[in-house]
């Protein structure tokens, strides 16, 4: 067995590149490490390359170049061993709707070649842990979205993996259920000492849940660190200005002159424009907000609304990309989704 290079890293990805047929560079030189016992978030908008990276680490895709190691094992060379030591729950809950919750658990227990006794014991434990004991005898088709996700989580750890990889574990769930799933994931890390790598496009989720974050955009990691470190990169406060009412578009002239004016103020660090609004990054919001107003007024520019906030990960993303990371998720009407919707309606 190969000696792991750095025993501390559960996942080590180096210069990973994936070019799909047709030339799309989904992953463009990604490197990062996840330490043992860490809860690591991979944050980025849809299409940033998160899922592709995850699929390479889980041995579902071959990288074009670069390496990915799980517990010191290269995913290309030792794919079978990697599969045995990771748990994986994808965006889509890939479980048999016609079988019961327990049957699904047992099936996957067999996939991981556990013996019947162990499967029974662990199924009981995991159903208990995920609060599904009562529903375990019911067909999955009758489960709610949150219950399916919990079952999917239970299935992914039936073989007690050291590393758990979750692709968008909370996508498509309502905010309250999202929070619950987050709690379950935290619980797994604390109770079982599992290393977790998860992707999300929810800023608040990455912020609250993770020990460390890598922000990815256009197939590249643009920055990484603890949530606090990242937010500290945006020193000071954010003052947001709206210059128009009722969504009427601000004329470029007004925007440009406001920008120009504010840029020359000594207390302004940076200005970002989003959809006709201005985000002004200042040192100390409480004193700088009135100053901004005075400057604008003095130059005959009207401010419709003004607000002051502490920097969020959204501001971090904005700083590096010049864009906000809105939820760009359009409802994908794939065959699968349609079928599932039809089935649920029945």
């Amino acid at each position: 067995m190969d000696e792991p290079e750095r025993a501390n890293d559960s996942i080590a990805v180096k210069d990973l590149v994936k070019v799909y047929k047709g030339g799309v560079r989904a992953v463009d030189g990604v490197s990062f490490e996840v330490k043992a016992g860490e809860l690591f978030a991979f944050l980025g908008p849809n299409g940033a390359g998160k899922s592709t990276t995850i699929k390479i680490i889980t041995t579902l895709l071959k990288p074009t170049s670069g390496t990915a190691e799980v517990l010191g094992m290269d995913v290309k060379i030792h794919s079978a061993r990697v599969r045995s030591s990771i748990g994986y729950a994808a965006q889509e809950v890939g479980i048999d709707e016609n079988a019961t919750g327990r049957e699904n658990l047992v099936l996957y227990g067999h996939f991981y070649r556990l013996d019947g006794k162990t499967i029974r014991r662990r199924s009981d434990e995991l159903l208990e842990l995920m609060d599904l004991t009562e529903e375990s005898g019911r067909q999955v088709a009758t489960y709610s979205g949150g219950m399916r996700k919990r079952l999917d989580l239970a299935i992914s750890i039936i073989h007690q993996p050291q590393v758990l990889i979750l692709d968008e574990p909370t996508v498509g769930l309502d905010p309250q259920t999202r929070g619950h799933i987050g709690d379950y994931i935290r619980n797994l890390v604390q109770e079982l000492g599992i290393t977790v790598l998860f992707t999300t496009h929810y800023m608040d989720e990455a912020d609250k849940l993770s020990d460390r974050i890598a922000i990815i955009d256009h197939g590249r990691i643009i920055t990484s660190g603890t949530p606090q470190e990242l937010k500290d990169e945006i020193s000071g406060d954010v003052v947001s200005l709206t210059l128009t009412t009722d969504g009427a578009s601000t004329s470029d002239g007004v925007l440009d002159s406001s920008r120009e004016m504010l840029r020359h103020q000594p207390f302004v660090r940076e200005i970002q424009e989003i959809d006709g609004d201005l985000n002004v990054y200042v040192e100390k919001g409480e004193t700088d907000l009135p100053r901004i107003l005075r400057v604008m007024d003095g130059n005959g520019l009207t401010v419709q609304t003004i607000s002051l906030s502490r920097p969020t990960l959204d501001d971090v993303f904005l700083k590096y990309t010049g864009r906000t990371m809105r939820d760009e998720e359009g409802q994908r009407t794939t065959w699968a989704r349609m079928q599932r919707d039809v089935r649920r309606r029945k």
Binding site: A80, A90, G94, F111, I155, A336, Q339
Partner: peptide, 18 residues
């Protein structure tokens, strides 16, 4: 098979040592 691919059932199985 197509349904399993679409619903992510196939990927989930492929990620196991089966």
């Amino acid at each position: 098979m197509i349904q399993d691919m679409d619903l992510g059932i196939l990927d989930k199985m492929l990620a196991t040592p089966v």
